[in-house]
Design a protein around this nucleic acid. Sequence first.
DNA 1: CGCAATTAGTTGCAAGTGAAACTAATGTCA
DNA 2: TGACATTAGTTTCACTTGCAACTAATTGCG
Lengths: 162, 162
Amino acid sequence: MSTNLPSTQDLLHLELFLPYRLNVVGSFASRALGRIYDERFGIGIPEWRVIAQLGEFGRLTSRDIGELSQMHKTKVSRAVTELEKRGFITRSENRQDRRESFIALTAPGARIYAEIVPLALAFQARWTEGLAPEELRVFERVLSILTERGRHLAGTYHENER
Amino acid sequence: MSTNLPSTQDLLHLELFLPYRLNVVGSFASRALGRIYDERFGIGIPEWRVIAQLGEFGRLTSRDIGELSQMHKTKVSRAVTELEKRGFITRSENRQDRRESFIALTAPGARIYAEIVPLALAFQARWTEGLAPEELRVFERVLSILTERGRHLAGTYHENER
DNA sequence: CGCAATTAGTTGCAAGTGAAACTAATGTCA
DNA sequence: TGACATTAGTTTCACTTGCAACTAATTGCG
């Protein structure tokens, strides 16, 4: 009864190779969600991530958003610019440090957030429906470990700066 | 002792949101592996996927490669063109169906494959090191289910054609 | 203080991407 | 057979991306 698990052997089956599998499943999720965000709200995934962080934490700087959502600072910059142009967020200069500015959801932005959250949660619920809670728990635990190790294996430079 | 698991609630924490997490971990893996492929062999991830499939299955058409590796046909086309230009693969017309051609690794291509496979396996081994086999087994099982469902949630159009 | 180093954020640029249109070949079906 | 539909693969185009360089502000340190 072999484990079918990744191990050190001399054969490689791409369809069992974790980095490949994680990218495939991630891209499926992005495609499905991206379509929802775009069709119903006209925004992309980077914009959604910005809104999600602002909805969860309130006022943040671009730097905070990048760190929290693991996005490159240029991606954050562009998403923020776009969201501001559409009136979903506002920027206000930080008088204590005029390099940065505080970003917050406007009322329309908060409305979008309030509309997307249940959709996102429903999507996740449907996606994980029927899986044993214990299995899901293990899955998430392993996922956390792989993410943390991946952050280091990827080197000092992740998608966001530093 | 709450489960910390995704469920239908009215709060969303992006850092616990599965689509987000899967994309983050996938991008870490891609970045780490991509750096290896590029630095040591001068190829990118799409090229690596093509080589991997040819190394595993032998002679294939571009269509096969796209299906097996879940890549859009244009991405396959470009990777194949590039690999041919570098002498890692050859194309030979299929006389039974002259729309397609068979693609196979050349000797240098097979050498690259033979060099990358142990690196990839070692990477995976190091990445999953110390995790309980039973946990990894559960992880992979859930990952398979999520992938299969994701394929459908993403709609008929995945990254590859149709 | 004053000057070098650091940091927040933006922009130019070159590369990579997928959708759609396209070419050429094959399949289908009356 | 002949016309229409389908398929393999390529190319064009618009868009996204990350890196590097940049600006402006702040910090650190002699």
